[in-house]
Design a protein around this nucleic acid. Structure first.
Lengths: 158, 158
DNA sequence: ACGATATGGTTGCAAACGTAACCATTATTT
DNA sequence: AAATAATGGTTACGTTTGCAACCATATCGT
């Protein structure tokens, strides 16, 4: 019966969540204003832009998104003509996704935004803070990898 | 035209978000299973439990939640008879919230869960990782405080 | 004192979400 | 070669979310 003295302020899940929210929303404001993208869409674009042709499943694995999110984001980006699908000849269950030239252009602009934002953030937070944060995050990421094993990042089972 | 070489994996908003999601969902699984609480409910309980009687607005400020979330969480906790409201005599717009004995009991059990989870987490991540993470988060929290002041508390990612 | 404005809090609504069920296709078992 | 399971991906549905509009009360400006 360890008694009182519990503060949300010290609780890691809470602190992480708040920091992520703050940092994430501020960035989202940038690309939302400029392109009207949702976060799943931006992530999908980023995955395809940086790693090239891949399947929906791979996008999900690469960017930690639930498959329905990916499915919807892919649909939206397709509507926008920023990506095109093509069926795999050998295995007709899977579709390969690829950015169109317009999509690649948007990607280039967006990662420029992202880089600027990250730089801004690093300036605000300071080198030490960033380094500490990065180390800490790396530690958690390792746990994720461990516990995640071969598991897909479907938030279902976390 | 700073060119290619952008990786989501290195992008801080993304990393923070993923870590927060992982850590948060794992904890949520604990209290969801045991009490059927949602995260806004748990946060409200935690705020009231640790700081005592306060208004909805204060709960929101204390735990970084949008006012509609707080409103709904308060309603749910009230249904459960874990908190009671009372109108302020001087200013009848505001209601003071307070945990009932049952609510306090639940709070005690929940912070015990939280403490155990935090300990487990610290064991997994390791002292260095935790310390780094904490330092990094503190740096961001300072920015939040600075820039945050009058700003509205925004949505949850989790 | 009186209209405008602000504040604490709730609610209607549309959009976003996760779960589960599903379709089509491929792999495995028997 | 059937029957069964597994896989990539989509969709129907109920829930949760945030925004905006709102109610009631309080404060400000004049």
């Amino acid at each position: 019966m360890t008694t009182d003295s519990f503060e949300l302020e010290q609780f890691l899940p809470y602190r992480l969540n708040r920091a992520a929210e703050f940092v994430g929303l501020r960035f989202a404001a940038h690309y939302k204003a400029k392109y009207g993208l949702t976060r799943p869409e931006w992530r999908t674009l980023a995955a395809l832009g940086s790693s090239g042709r891949m399947t929906s499943k791979a996008v999900g694995a690469h960017s930690s998104m639930h498959k329905t999110k990916v499915s919807r984001a892919v649909f939206a980006l397709e509507q926008r003509r920023w990506l095109k699908r093509s069926q795999d000849e050998a295995d007709r269950r899977l579709e390969h996704l690829e950015l169109t030239p317009a999509g690649q252009q948007a990607y280039r602009e967006l990662i420029e935004l992202a880089r600027r934002y990250q730089a801004e953030l690093e300036a605000e937070v300071g080198g030490n803070g960033i380094e500490a944060l990065s180390t800490g995050l790396a530690a958690i990421e390792q746990i994720i990898r461990r516990s995640g094993k071969g598991k897909p990042p479907e938030p279902d089972e976390l």
